[in-house]
């Protein structure tokens, strides 16, 4: 989908040599802190910004040369939902439809349907001015879906939402993702929603791609084996810890208030550990595997990156900074 996509701004690099691909029907999460380059990526992919270097192909189209054609088939929920406060919810949708050259009874009923689906029927004829952030995001989503786009870009769809509104919006996005093979690119700094929705994640930091892949695959690269939590009904004895450590395939044990967390090379090692504990008269109440969450993966990536890159800036008299690292990750 992209190769070496780069965009600089007067203040510095917005995005450096991004190379990623997205399969049709996939949900890709663009993860990263503020200023990572998520919005810049969305703008480049939808042909709103032009790259300084590199190229992209979206739906088989080049965003630079066929931007208008491409944008007719993509929908975007921007960071600020971008609704006109001085219009009603319905007027905002009608306006967006006309800008897309959509008129007539078909689009009117589509608007009606979307207002209903997004719980905005009640508010349809009131000015957007008084709407809550959650209502705005939902209306923004409805607008992004007016023309039933093949690719949906969602930029921070849950920022500024309370927990209930967040859950509603995440559920809506989940239902959109399962609709007829629509591709979704979800830019966010919230790991929770990315974990719930994304098939793959691209982690960005200061314009550079630092990881790209399925959370499971990334976890496998980061850690050896899997974690399992053993509930022993209380603090483990030294003998119990030794018994667990003695089993071959156990990499690591961490005692805690209700038992031990073990790291094992393969899942079947867990059974051996349980047998060994029972043989030592230690009751095992439960053995719960703990596959790493997207959150675990993300923080591990961040932590490792912090170790790699020195935090001190070179003195101004020093040699010029080395050229930015070029990353190319493909799956």
């Amino acid at each position: 989908m992209t190769t070496g996509l780069t965009r600089q701004f007067p203040g510095g690099v917005g995005l450096d040599s991004l190379s990623i691909d997205v399969a049709p029907g996939e949900v890709l999460a663009l993860l990263g802190p503020n200023g990572a380059g998520k919005t810049t990526t969305v703008r480049l992919l939808n042909g709103v910004l032009a790259p300084d270097a590199g190229s992209a192909t979206v739906l088989g189209l080049d965003p630079v040369t066929a931007g208008d054609e491409l944008r007719a088939r993509t929908g975007v929920l921007t960071e600020h939902a971008g609704l006109d406060d001085r219009l009603t919810a319905r007027e905002n949708l009608r306006y967006a439809a006309m800008v897309r050259n959509l008129r007539g009874p078909a689009i009117e009923s589509r608007i009606e349907e979307l207002l209903h689906r997004f719980g905005m029927t009640e508010r349809a004829d009131r000015l957007v001015r008084g709407a809550s952030t959650g209502q705005r995001k939902r209306l923004g989503l409805a607008r992004a879906l007016l023309h039933d786009p093949d690719v949906l870009f969602l930029d921070e769809p849950t920022s500024g939402l309370d927990p209930t509104a967040t859950r509603d919006v995440v559920e809506l996005i989940g239902s959109l993702a399962s609709e007829h093979g629509r591709t979704i690119v979800l830019a966010t700094h919230f790991l929770g929603e990315a974990g719930r929705l994304a098939d793959r994640m691209a982690v960005l930091d200061r314009g550079s791609l630092i990881a790209f892949g399925r959370p499971d695959d990334l976890a496998a690269e980061l850690w050896d084996g899997m974690e399992c939590d053993l509930d022993l009904g209380g603090s483990p004895s030294a003998a119990a810890i030794d018994a667990a450590n003695a089993v071959s395939g156990v990499r690591d044990t961490t005692p805690h208030a209700r038992g031990i967390t073990i790291r094992v090379s393969t899942p079947d090692v867990v059974a051996g550990v349980v047998r060994s504990l029972v043989a030592h008269q230690v009751d095992v109440h439960a053995a719960v595997p703990r596959p790493p969450t997207l959150e675990d993966v993300y923080f591990e990536i961040e932590a490792r990156r912090a170790l790699e890159t020195p935090t001190t800036t070179p003195p101004p008299t020093g040699p010029p900074a080395p050229p930015p690292m070029r990353k190319r990750v493909r799956t």
Binding site: E69, A72, H80, V99, R100, G140
Partner: peptide
């Protein structure tokens, strides 16, 4: 000012 420009630019209008 109203932050409506970006979503407009993401539409296919020339």
């Amino acid at each position: 000012e109203r932050k409506t420009l970006e979503s407009l630019l993401h539409s296919p209008i020339r």
